[in-house]
């Protein structure tokens, strides 16, 4: 299959008539890391939820790996080969780490695939390996984030959507998580990364989109955006000398 891994055009998402996402068009090519940055409430999570149809979109179109997802149940969208690592991780706190990973393999049950992917998880995040039989609800925030990413990988997705993986983590853990994101991308998986940590987001992504109150205000190569005065002032917290 060719064409972009993800293509949104004029996406609109409303909650009870109030538009959280007004007009978002973006595309992610296969093999790319693309960042979606924006302030609290800009509509980033809503964009990701619409991609997997956890919320239906009011207008526009979403094409995931070449297929229009309008009207599909979420599990059907996931079947296309996309995984969302949601904000707040949403790990199953009543189950063990091992069972969380197994649930990630719900559509990919082949014993060999499960074994290979579990080994990849442990190689990416050795701390998970030591905690396989621990209740996932008792993991630290950083470990939960690792588990959420590892769980997404269990399905062998072609496209991963990450919603603020750095949220609430200590700086050294953030570095570790971002290193693993780069490693995952190097294995050929396409990544759309939602972040408020703009500096890191621009570091790992080839391209980025800036979302302001539900609309794309700015987009381009990460290198260009890093030097853009609007970004430096509003998102990188640098004082611009006049």
């Amino acid at each position: 299959m060719s064409g972009p891994a993800l293509e949104l055009s004029s996406l609109r998402v409303s909650y009870g008539g109030i538009a959280a996402v007004k007009d978002v068009s973006l595309s992610v090519q296969r093999g790319e890391i693309v960042s979606l940055i924006g302030a609290n409430g800009a509509g980033k999570s809503s964009v990701l939820k619409a991609i997997v149809q956890l919320v239906p979109h009011a207008a526009g179109s979403v094409r995931v790996l070449g297929k229009d997802v309008r009207g599909l149940a979420s599990h059907r969208v996931v079947e296309l080969g996309v995984a969302l690592v949601p904000e707040g991780r949403a790990i199953f706190g009543n189950l063990s780490v091992r069972e969380n990973l197994l649930l990630g393999a719900f559509l990919n049950r082949d014993a060999a695939a499960i074994e290979r992917n579990r080994a990849r998880s442990v190689q990416l995040f050795p701390r998970l390996g030591e905690r396989m039989d621990q209740n996932a609800g008792t993991l630290s925030g950083g470990e939960q984030q690792m588990l959420a990413i590892a769980r997404a990988l269990m399905a062998d997705p072609k496209l991963i959507l990450l919603d603020e993986p750095s949220l609430g983590l200590a700086p050294n853990l953030v570095t570790q998580i971002f290193e693993s994101i780069v490693e995952i991308a190097q294995s050929g998986i396409t990544i759309l990364l939602v972040e408020q940590n703009t500096r890191l987001a621009l570091q790992v992504a080839q391209r980025a989109y800036v979302l302001v109150t539900g609309e794309v205000a700015l987009s381009g190569e990460s290198a260009e955006l890093r030097d853009d005065p609007r970004i430096r002032e509003a998102y990188l917290g640098e004082a611009i000398e006049a």
């Binding site: 956890l54 599990h75 996931v78 969302l84 949403a90 009543n94 649930l103």
Partner: peptide, 18 residues
């Protein structure tokens, strides 16, 4: 296993392809 996942978080279960 899917039942136990649903009882904890139904949206997260959907994300597993359930």
């Amino acid at each position: 296993r899917a039942m136990r996942a649903l009882s904890f978080n139904i949206d997260a279960a959907k994300l597993m392809g359930i």
